[in-house]
Design a protein around this nucleic acid. Structure first.
Lengths: 213, 213
DNA sequence: CTGGTACCTACCTGATTGTGTAATTGTCAA
DNA sequence: TTGACAATTACACAATCAGGTAGGTACCAG
């Protein structure tokens, strides 16, 4: 069962090369290849491919807009960016717009094929350079939770609170009594310099002591 | 030129399997395999491998601590997590501590080898499930505030709640009675499909209905 | 003008949350 | 071994929160 895909790439030569490469490669079936993504919605509707390869620099509408257009209406279609641009701004904008992968154009044909395979399996293939930037982003956006000196047990309780559990539910999940939960939260509130659960939740999320689901 | 690597994994069978697999595979050379990472610093100093495979659940010191230990002193050594844990907290903590990749233990030997190759080339190999979580982290603002249809008054009340105000304080600030505040919040909870203030706060921040100060 | 919606108020009831004090156990380091 | 600290439990009291019910005003669209 071949994986169907559509290509958006304004460079004719590259577009035709990709099309040829992937159609020769067993396992893929290029059902469409276009020089711009302004008609992406109707094209997705007509072709309903599994994957989309999206260039950024195209006439009329950029691929950054294109990926948003596609993912807003067809969130199940997996879109990978394929571009020469490796700056933070474009990378993060594409990911925020729903891109599922990000390949630089210096990628070898073999790696490209591996990436598309990975993409169809639910992965998020990235060129090494891009992957580094993505990981680096996590390490900078972190205001060490060390400053609050919460114990692991306290973090557990706090996380439970953030997940929307009541004292009673926290008690059950952590196999302790409700009074102990109260005590822990009291200590947590002091350590976080807050006065109630609501504030504690905000602070926990803000300082990434606990993450969104 | 074989890629040198060290394995930290407390399960004897798995550790020996990995060692065997990777030593047979041309291109790799396992120069060390240990059941805990408490002596990682001296081991890194002695063996100076290019890559490290790090389990999380190990006696004494967890791999989460281990990766921090290694990366703090040897930032050039590339460390990939290899674990059964797929929760947000552990994943993000490992990345923040400097992990360069994150593989789940259900990964096939072939994929493992590909991942190690990718790791040594500067990439950040991740299991598909992990990759999705990492990408999802960038997209917290994608769900439109419109979907909840909160009125401006309700957003005002909700924001006040997020800022840590009690019902009474909200009532004062918005110049309404405490009973009205309750009624508004009741409506807000219904619209957000939550059952308490804590959950409402999380949802408000997650979907950027209200922003951090 | 009638219905829908946002907004506001009030009251009642029960559950939950937050604070204080006090005590026990285990671990770890000086 | 003593002291510090994490984790635990308990009880009591006050404050706050959440649900339900029942109304009232104002404004806008059919």
């Amino acid at each position: 069962m071949a994986i169907t895909l559509v290509i958006y790439e304004d460079n004719v030569k590259l577009r035709e090369s990709l099309q040829l490469l992937l159609n020769v490669e067993s396992g893929f079936n290029v059902t469409g290849a276009f020089s711009h993504c302004m008609d992406a919605v109707s094209q997705m509707y007509g072709l309903s491919p599994e994957l989309v390869i999206m260039d950024i620099d195209m006439p009329g509408m950029s691929g950054i807009e294109g990926v948003k257009l596609i993912k807003n209406t067809f969130p199940h279609i997996r879109v990978i960016m394929y571009t020469v641009f490796d700056d933070d701004t474009r990378i993060f904008e594409c990911i925020c717009n729903g891109a599922d992968g990000y390949l630089l154009k210096n990628t070898s044909p073999l790696k490209l094929i591996q990436a598309l395979q990975e993409l169809s399996e639910g992965g998020a293939p990235m060129s090494p350079f891009v992957a580094q930037k993505v990981f680096a982003h996590f390490r900078t956006s972190r205001i060490s939770n060390q400053t609050f000196n919460l114990t692991s047990r306290e973090i557990e309780i706090l996380e439970s609170l953030v997940r929307g559990n009541s004292y009673k539910m926290i008690a059950d999940k952590s196999s302790i009594t409700i009074d102990t939960v109260k005590k822990h939260l009291q200590n947590i509130y002091h350590k976080l310099h807050v006065n109630c659960g609501t504030e504690a939740v905000v602070k926990a999320l803000q300082h990434k002591i606990v993450h969104f689901e």
